[in-house]
Design a protein around this nucleic acid. Sequence first.
DNA 1: TTGAAAGCGCTAACAG
DNA 2: CTGTTAGCGCTTTCAA
Lengths: 334, 334
Amino acid sequence: MSSSRTTIRDVAAQAGVSVATVSKVLNARYGVSAATQARVQQVIDELGYQSSIVASSLRSHRTGVLGVLVADLEPFSTELLKGVAAAVRGTGYELVIYSAGGRSGERVGWERRYLSRLGGTLIDAAVLVTPTVVDADHGLPVVAVDPHAGAASVPTVSADNQRGARLAVDHLLGLGHHRIAFISGWPGLESTRLRHEGYRASLAAAGVPLDADLVLEGDATQERSHVLALDLLQRPERPTAVFAGNDMAALGVLAAARELGIAVPEQLSVVGFDNVPEAVMATPALTTVEQPMQAMGEQALRMLLELLAGGTPASRVVLDTRLVLRHSTAPPPF
Amino acid sequence: MSSSRTTIRDVAAQAGVSVATVSKVLNARYGVSAATQARVQQVIDELGYQSSIVASSLRSHRTGVLGVLVADLEPFSTELLKGVAAAVRGTGYELVIYSAGGRSGERVGWERRYLSRLGGTLIDAAVLVTPTVVDADHGLPVVAVDPHAGAASVPTVSADNQRGARLAVDHLLGLGHHRIAFISGWPGLESTRLRHEGYRASLAAAGVPLDADLVLEGDATQERSHVLALDLLQRPERPTAVFAGNDMAALGVLAAARELGIAVPEQLSVVGFDNVPEAVMATPALTTVEQPMQAMGEQALRMLLELLAGGTPASRVVLDTRLVLRHSTAPPPF
DNA sequence: TTGAAAGCGCTAACAG
DNA sequence: CTGTTAGCGCTTTCAA
């Protein structure tokens, strides 16, 4: 606030030239004599002048910055960001990250609002992480990671969710479990649907009838899953295993079991999805399906750069998942 | 690009009013009849119009967004961000994160450049994480986390680094180690200096003479530490323990030891600092000093809000550290 | 209650 | 090579 920032006019005045000339040296344009160039540059340094990215981008419609939009900074998006950050290095672009801050109320469509408020003026292109809406209509290049179901014309990158879920449930089945509950992630996400599908496919392949009461709709948060699990685990015929749609939900289940005095894995097996760093720290360490989050971030950024360069990246990239065995699963009791 | 975005003029034209009027309804200003108000709003909805945050902030000099500037998205800053994001929830502010992308060349002072390019127009205030320069001169409210040495007038939050380092070295000393090397973090950071100080103080208190050859200057990256450790561990009289200035550096030491066939902790003890999630996943799991990264982030944001509200937060908040024992330390061999 | 006009700080023609 | 002239999309007096 206050103490008015030094503007291009201050520099111009001080150097005894026009603002246009200053702008030219700022942007290394042709048509400035070495002498003026030097003089202006000196004044710039003296005054510690920095051009306002806002003003310049308002005018020039390009900014040299790429945006990543995440709904919240939970472990999944955080891992993904590391990959994006790694991939942007050395490209000459800068990275800014927008977090909606996890406000649930206005969650749907927030990325569209952001995009149109920022696009063309503040960022040149964007990676959307678990977007709720994906249409091509916002004028700038966009790549979506783990998108909402029904993604349209935007290039997407995701993990092999369906296969990952099958790996998880096959593992539980293999241990001898039959009553396997499923707590889903954010409804609407393609990944949620596919994991659910994998769960059903796995049961079907093993000839285990689906019990609809064992399928719960969560929202990928630990809190919600905790509440759901508290109820689930107090039923007369509780499941012997839970496949949670993501790791944070699995941690919620672990917490609920602990409160109810149910031992994991002796009396209850739990499998997660993602393999976030937190999964290892859980007690017991969580058996989970790993999706290559950092690689997904890198991939998304590479596709964005290709788009920016006028190319046409693959419209849909799917990376592999694999099961990571730790200590939250065991054969069922009795 | 292309397909020119809908502007306030489009809305005005469509609604048959002036842009001034549209602006008023956008900002809920007085002096608009209910009828026009409604009509304009309807056109806004129809057109899916979103005001450009850039244009509006250029004019009004306030944005409702808070910035966090991090040099890179490594595990430490990432954990911190989670805390900041948690604290911003429900405040009505939005959060944007700028990452310099770890470009080392222009590392020093980058936050000053960003700050003046963004300040007043793109963000209303900022949290700086491990800033290399901290002066009060950039016109907007700022709080620094883990700042450069010699921090001036800016409120800061940090962990008790000196005590943390003492805990680590005391632990090694207690196990019977005498030849304890120290690999420091980014030179210039206050935390680096204090951890070094703690290291020396601990040795001094135990009457162990300081061996200057065992103090190496790192930069907090795994790569650099790896190189340093490779040399260190091949010396004729190699140390029996290494205290790394941060966890990533400790992981670099672990990697070097593995390559050289030196068993940890049997032949070499290693202690880190931070307790990032990665520390648990290391082989062996890393004994380290925990600093409450998320709490530090929350604290910083709270102080920023206080500043924004016109208050005067504590100029220096220091949070506790504690030693986390895992499996990378043991008594020295022989 | 409304709108015309004057910028915010900068860039992009176009003249000189 | 340099400066003048128009704006970018929006907010904000200030008249009407």
